[in-house]
């Protein structure tokens, strides 16, 4: 993914998260969807902007740690 396509993806996901925040009606699924959008955005930054797409082993390592972090946040946020 080139940097401009990454930027478009990040903007689209930010718009999606905003829409979910406005129209989510307090539902747990909306909270989790917002966090999934943040998860995908973080992966886009790591792979496209920070160049980890060209270092697959490091990309997998970062993805694993990021995934564990996001699952912890989602678990703690599901009860809000």
């Amino acid at each position: 993914m080139d940097v401009t396509r990454a930027w478009v993806t990040l903007m689209a996901l930010s718009a999606l998260a905003t829409a979910l925040a406005v129209f989510g009606q307090g539902a747990t699924w909306a909270v989790l969807a917002i966090l999934v959008a943040a998860w995908i955005k973080a992966r886009v930054v790591l792979r496209a902007y920070l160049g980890l797409a060209g270092a697959p082993d490091w990309s997998r390592g970062f993805s694993l740690v990021l995934g564990l972090f996001m699952l912890a946040i989602m678990g703690l946020s599901a009860f809000t």
Binding site: A21, Q25, V31, I34, A38, A42, Y49
Partner: peptide
Amino acid sequence: MVDLVWLLLFPVLYLVGRV
């Protein structure tokens, strides 16, 4: 890195618990 941190801070501080 600064960008990435904000992308994680924003939903947790500003959105989760509000929606």
